[in-house]
């Protein structure tokens, strides 16, 4: 059995373990979805009617991409929490004493995070459909949206891995997600950047969330994605690579 096949087998078994934890407490998926659903209701029914997006379409279609990103940002806090609990409970030490690939321990948490967060996204999407969201996008566009959301989850999850491994407390493990949850608010997720004052508009236009939101919005409304998709992919892949390198370094330091 090659080293790669060995690592894959280890990852599969450990992912199964992590997924069992999720399945035994499915409330984490619901809890993750509660805040985005509350925001969805607030923006659609209370604030939405007063916001001029300049797009002419329904406001729920305009703001849904941002809500989906907030769902993921809320969910990855649980990944950091689960990692921290494994570290605190001595699970990492026990696994380190076994003949398993070191990378598989982290990849198991990461893959579990992707599955759990996409499940939360599905819950939020179902609520959006109940509230009147409709899209004429084809299967290809929906698959592209799913791919972008999965890549976004993957990138942020590796950031969560660093937070989970370096945190000194449960609060510290999940606190890193607050700025990530807040970031979509200062983007084109809820209002067009043109309506913001100069410096705020500049920041909103040049931060990663705007490119990702605009790409998803264009895909769901059957419009041309333009150059936004490449900017979005560059941001996500960049964060993913840097966070992965950082997480590997933190894990190596912890193993010493």
């Amino acid at each position: 059995m090659t080293a790669a096949a060995h690592a894959l087998a280890d990852t599969r078994i450990l992912t199964g373990r992590s997924l069992k934890h999720i399945l035994r407490s499915p409330d984490t998926i619901i809890t993750t979805a509660i805040t985005p659903i509350a925001l969805l209701l607030l923006f659609v029914f209370v604030l939405g009617g007063a916001i001029d997006t300049g797009s002419g379409g329904s406001y729920i279609a305009y703001m849904l991409p941002g809500i989906l990103l907030i769902t993921i940002a809320s969910g990855i806090a649980y990944t950091a929490y689960r990692l921290f609990m494994d570290k605190q409970g001595g699970v990492f030490e026990r696994l380190r004493s076994m003949p398993i690939a070191r990378s598989s321990v982290l990849w198991a948490h990461v893959l579990t995070s992707v599955v759990a967060n996409l499940a939360s996204v599905a819950v939020v999407l179902a609520v959006a459909l109940l509230l009147g969201f409709r899209s004429g996008a084809g299967i290809g566009a929906w698959l592209a949206v799913a791919g972008i959301l999965a890549l976004f989850t993957l990138a942020l999850t590796w950031v969560a891995v660093i937070a989970g491994l370096t945190a000194g407390s449960v609060e510290g493990a999940s606190a890193f997600s607050y700025p990530l949850i807040f970031l979509p608010f200062i983007s084109s997720a809820f209002v067009p950047t043109q309506s913001m004052p100069g410096p705020v508009a500049w920041f909103a236009e040049h931060q990663p969330v705007t490119a990702i939101v605009d790409t998803i919005r264009a895909l769901l409304s059957r419009q041309s994605v333009g150059g936004d998709i490449w900017v979005a992919l560059a941001w996500m892949v960049g964060v993913l690579v840097l966070a992965w390198i950082g997480a590997a370094a933190v894990q190596r330091r912890a193993a010493r």
Binding site: L47, A50, I51, D52, T53, F185, I186, F190, V191, P192, S195, M196, P197, V200, A204
Partner: peptide
């Protein structure tokens, strides 16, 4: 800050 500088212009 959020409502004044981010949402305000669109409301």
């Amino acid at each position: 800050l959020l409502f004044t500088y981010v949402f305000g212009g669109a409301i």
